[in-house]
């Protein structure tokens, strides 16, 4: 029995060794390709079909209505409001994330006692589930007696407790603040990883020539960081524009539609309004917006980030 299994194994080994590089590469990639087709390609195609139909969550006979839902959506003021909110939210969050991320990375790149511990601490929000982060902020900025309200009143920023999450003025800045805190560790890691690869000799040489710290930052650090920052900003913009959980858990797009972005609008229409077809159409338009944004970004910065 063992003899046959050994020979079978040897045969299998032989077969594997006789494959060309191209064949074995494709063979190893196969499970990935299958999964991507089942969990990305097929759903997206199904979704495209939905978007051309009037289909509700529990109805059995969808009616074909062509591009009508796309046309209606693009002509609605709700879509453009969500689009605008998405831009504000994305630009705001990415700005905060990049500033805090680069800042913390610059500090962590210095050498000091307890470096490993502090680095872990600063990066730790990366591991906290978004639900936890949003709940902690909702408690901290609680409208009745949150600690933030107390501190802000003492400092004279506001006169009375503010209901941060249900005010149309403060809800969006609030979401940007939460996103900034939740997402800066990603940028920090990306930048820190790059900073650690800049050779010390560059700075030593600059020191010998009497270059100031600011000068060193502008002439050595920034050019080295450029490519990594382009990538970080692109990915962060894609993610943030698509982000669902922070907004949903923070405000559900409210008050009214004040913080409704495109993904939230699509979800609300599909699952609260039970209009799957229309929801998918909004989701596709979100994708189109992102694709256009990405192409513009690559066209303008592509070569430099490569």
């Amino acid at each position: 029995m063992s003899a046959t299994s050994t020979s079978a194994l040897a045969q299998a080994k032989n077969k594997v060794d006789n494959l060309s590089e191209n064949q074995i590469g494709l063979l190893l990639i196969l499970p990935l390709a299958v999964l991507l087709m089942v969990l990305y390609l097929y759903p997206i195609l199904r979704g495209f079909v939905f978007s051309l139909q009037e289909v509700s969550l529990f109805a059995t006979d969808p009616a074909w209505i062509g591009a009508q839902q796309y046309i209606d959506t693009v002509n609605s003021s709700r879509f453009w409001n969500a689009f605008e909110n998405g831009i504000i939210y994305t630009v705001g969050s990415v700005a905060v994330t990049v500033v805090v991320g680069v800042g913390t990375a610059m500090v962590l790149n210095r050498s000091f006692f307890g470096e490993r511990f502090v680095t872990g601490l600063i990066l730790s929000p990366y591991m906290i589930p978004i639900v936890g982060i949003v709940l902690i902020f909702r408690w901290l900025f609680n409208g009745l007696n949150g600690a933030a309200n107390y501190v802000f009143i003492q400092l004279g920023f506001v006169n009375e407790p503010v209901a941060w999450f249900s005010s149309s003025t403060y809800a969006m800045p609030m979401l940007i603040l939460i996103s900034g805190w939740a997402l800066y560790p990603f940028v920090c890691m990306l930048v820190l990883a790059k900073l650690q690869t800049i050779p010390d000799e560059y700075y030593e040489a600059a020191n010998l020539m009497g270059a100031s710290r600011t000068r060193q930052f502008v002439s050595i650090t920034l050019p080295q960081l450029k490519s990594v920052l382009f990538v970080a900003i692109l990915l962060r913009m894609l993610w943030t524009f698509n982000l669902f959980d922070i907004i949903w858990l923070g405000t559900q797009g409210g008050p009214g539609n004040a913080t409704e972005t495109l993904p939230i609008m699509a979800y609300r229409i599909a699952f609260d309004g039970l209009r799957l077809g229309e929801g998918t159409a909004v989701a596709f338009l979100t994708f189109v917006v992102l694709a256009i944004g990405t192409i513009i970004y690559f066209r303008s910065f592509g070569e430099r980030s490569a």
Binding site: P43, P263, L276
Partner: peptide, 13 residues
């Protein structure tokens, strides 16, 4: 992959 909004996958899935 990250260009696809989660909702776009979520509804058909």
């Amino acid at each position: 992959i990250y260009m696809f909004p989660l909702v776009l996958l979520g509804i058909p899935l």
